[in-house]
């Protein structure tokens, strides 16, 4: 099982080169760049595609196949998952129980997050001596980072605690699919992961250990939610949802293929990028990881320690601005 191992402190501070080229793309519906990225990277041959985030629409891959020039091999992770859960009722039960624990923990984290974010916002607005307030503001921000880190530690602990009950490596229904997938993945020249429902996508990728079965060096392309799951931590965000305060929340440990990045597809639609306070808060919260705007069709290529970003890729800065990036 390839779940990115988080250091105890969960700081993501040390740069670490992935063992394969990674491409993080913006949403592909309005502006498609997937085909060009594959072509520019010289990727020929079959491409394993994951559309599990689309759930019951997983098989509606005509447009995707066109972008892959017919070379896509759908891994059908969503329907495979349904088959597994139908066949192994005990696994379905245990999996459900673990999800309930994680969901409960997410809600209690939300309570603490709400108050921590409110304290930060209040301190930012509060007039007073700068030398005193600066320390309070930084402490409040650090409390937020600590809260996020602690939440991810607890999520990781839940995964570890439940692994012996899930016994994914021993269950015939899971193993049969994993072997099929391993065989398929052995012959592909890239893995392409679409967006959709991020939790479902992440669960299916873990259930079948897709990244663990992908030969070393084979490139991975993820767009929108598919880009999110490739990073070290899954962060959900919306500055103006119809209900609730709109606090970005850390949700899960990602697959960790792309390091030191918080992926923000649809950021222009979901975030108030002209609100310097919110932008600054977001950037500082996750620093030193780069909070990266993945707008429609944007491409961020990561190969070793070399990042290449096109013009649609921007980064939230600590000073509240949003700037183009390349590195």
């Amino acid at each position: 099982m390839t779940v990115a191992t988080l250091p105890a402190a969960v700081t993501f501070a040390s740069p670490s080169a992935p063992d394969r080229p990674v491409f993080l793309l913006g949403p592909q519906r309005i502006k498609t760049t997937l085909g060009r990225v594959l072509k520019d990277a010289g990727i020929d041959g079959d491409i394993a595609s994951v559309t599990a985030g689309w759930q019951e629409r997983e098989d509606e891959v005509e447009e995707l196949q066109a972008q892959l020039r017919g070379r896509g091999v759908s891994l059908r992770l969503h329907s495979r998952g349904d088959e597994v859960f139908r066949e192994d009722r005990d696994l379905a039960k245990v999996h459900h129980e673990r999800q309930v624990v994680l969901q409960t923990m997410q809600r209690t984290y939300d309570v603490r997050l709400r108050h921590t974010m409110a304290a930060i916002a209040e301190l930012e607005r509060r007039p007073g001596p700068a030398e005193i307030l600066a320390a309070d503001r930084e402490d409040a921000m650090q409390a937020l980072r600590d809260l996020d880190a602690r939440h991810l530690e607890r999520v990781q602990a839940i995964h570890e605690e439940w692994a012996p009950r899930l016994r994914l490596g021993e269950r015939p229904a899971v193993q049969r699919h994993r072997k099929e997938l391993e065989k398929t993945l052995a012959g592909v020249s890239a893995l392409a992961i679409s967006g959709g429902h991020v939790a479902v996508l992440l669960n299916r990728l873990r259930l079948f250990d897709v990244l663990g079965s992908l030969p070393a060096g084979v490139p991975v392309v993820g767009w929108s939610g598919g880009a999110i799951v490739l990073t070290e931590r899954v962060v959900f965000y919306h500055d103006s949802p119809p209900q609730g305060p709109g606090n970005a929340e850390v949700f899960e440990i990602g697959l960790g293929v792309a390091r030191n990045v918080v992926a923000l597809p649809h950021a222009t639609r979901r975030l108030s990028l002209d609100d310097t306070e919110r932008v600054s808060r977001f950037a500082r919260r996750f620093a030193p990881a780069a909070s990266v705007v993945l707008d429609d069709g944007g491409v961020l290529s990561i190969d070793g320690d070399r990042w290449t970003a096109d013009a649609a890729i921007r980064r939230l800065e600590a000073d509240g601005t949003v700037k183009g990036m390349s590195r």
């Binding site: 967006g195 429902h197 991020v198 929108s224 999110i228 119809p242 209900q243 929340e249 597809p265």
Partner: peptide, 18 residues
């Protein structure tokens, strides 16, 4: 309608990034 419907039937806003 936005406030009312989204309170009665919250959508998958937080989880879905297509």
């Amino acid at each position: 309608l936005r406030e009312g419907l989204s309170w009665l039937y919250p959508g998958p806003l937080w989880m879905v990034y297509e």
